[in-house]
Design a protein around this nucleic acid. Structure first.
Lengths: 199, 199
DNA sequence: TTTTGAACCTGTGAA
DNA sequence: TTTCACAGGTTCAAA
């Protein structure tokens, strides 16, 4: 079981994403005796998200994605009925490599709401981004500088750039246009959390 | 020994960066019986670099940064005599957190060469970026899309944004202007490579 | 196919 | 003796 899909429930979008125990067991990084792991995942647009997957300490595990999940939901504007999908991209890699897709329903409605909603929620979303994990914050800062270089050199290096980054970008934009929030990417780091908990 | 500096030798810039055995022992992630580890580091601009540190299988270890190092050298246009510095940012962190700085000598000369060199090497550098590790590539692609959102929302969310991302951006640009290629950042993932080797 | 450069591997001389 | 710069080799993959 290297993948799992689910339709978001109300709890999923308002509290935490409940995760199938099987998926947790086979595909998420080891808990190493702890009750939670933090891991970072990159969405299709390359943005790094940090989630914490935690289980109950007593009784049956009931794993959920807690910290980081709601920020993700809000950023992607996911609603009840939207579908998300986690998958392991490269089962052979030393560091696990996951993918996750989110597919919105009611695309037209969302499209219509977009203009208004974007303005209303802009500050919230922005605030969340800033408050995001250190790694995420650094990435953003990072790429702002990087962006300038890439952009500058892009003009005369289009041929090469086209092949990968550009191609992926076009694809990503296309997806955006269709109002699907498809995301996938690779985890490139995770920190096991032992006993009580770590921020 | 949580830090090491060295002036780049000819071999360092043309083959691989030789790493002091002491630094390897105390500061790099465990080899876990293997002869190499891959790890990712972020430079000051937030760009993620993947390096492989490998040792010899027979005889003395003679650790070097091999894969990924030359791409770094070329991208930063490092030459013989330039100085680099690795340091552990947070020795207490569960996942090791490193920093690395590179300081160029002959700043004026480099400055003068810049216009010409930039044009000549633009394609090379660009090509390297595209060929960079998957994570790196995704980051770039990522932030191209992300950039648009951030940029769009930035206008009305400046107050919050200024505090962190913007502040760091200004600082980063300043360093660039001084023609120093200062880089530092945190490793947020590493993959131990066991026996023969893993891609 | 050929070619080039990166990555990979080890021997050796020098400090 | 040990550590490191450098040489010289092979392998591999992309151009």
């Amino acid at each position: 079981m290297t993948t799992f899909s689910k339709i978001l429930s109300k709890t999923d979008t308002s509290k935490a994403l409940s995760v199938p125990t099987k998926y947790l067991k086979y595909s998420l990084p080891s808990f190493n005796g702890g009750h939670a792991v933090s891991f970072q995942a990159m969405d299709e647009s390359g943005f790094v998200w940090t989630f914490k997957c935690s289980t109950r300490k007593i009784g049956h595990p009931k794993p959920v994605l807690s910290k980081g999940w709601l920020a993700f939901v809000r950023n992607k504007k996911l609603k009840v009925g939207d579908k998300i999908k986690f998958s392991v991209l490269d089962p052979t890699a030393a560091v696990p490599s996951y993918g996750v897709q989110a597919e919105k329903v009611q695309a037209e409605k969302v499209q219509a709401e977009k203009v208004q909603e974007e303005k209303v929620q802009a500050e919230k979303v922005q605030a969340e981004k800033v408050q995001a994990e250190k790694v995420q914050a650094e990435n953003v800062q990072a790429e702002k500088v990087q962006e300038e270089k890439v952009q500058a050199e892009k003009v005369q290096a289009e041929k090469v750039q086209e092949e990968k980054v550009q191609a992926e970008k076009v694809q990503a934009e296309k997806v955006q246009a269709e109002k699907e929030v498809k995301i996938f990417g690779a985890i490139f780091g995770y920190s096991p959390i032992t006993a009580p908990s770590i921020p």
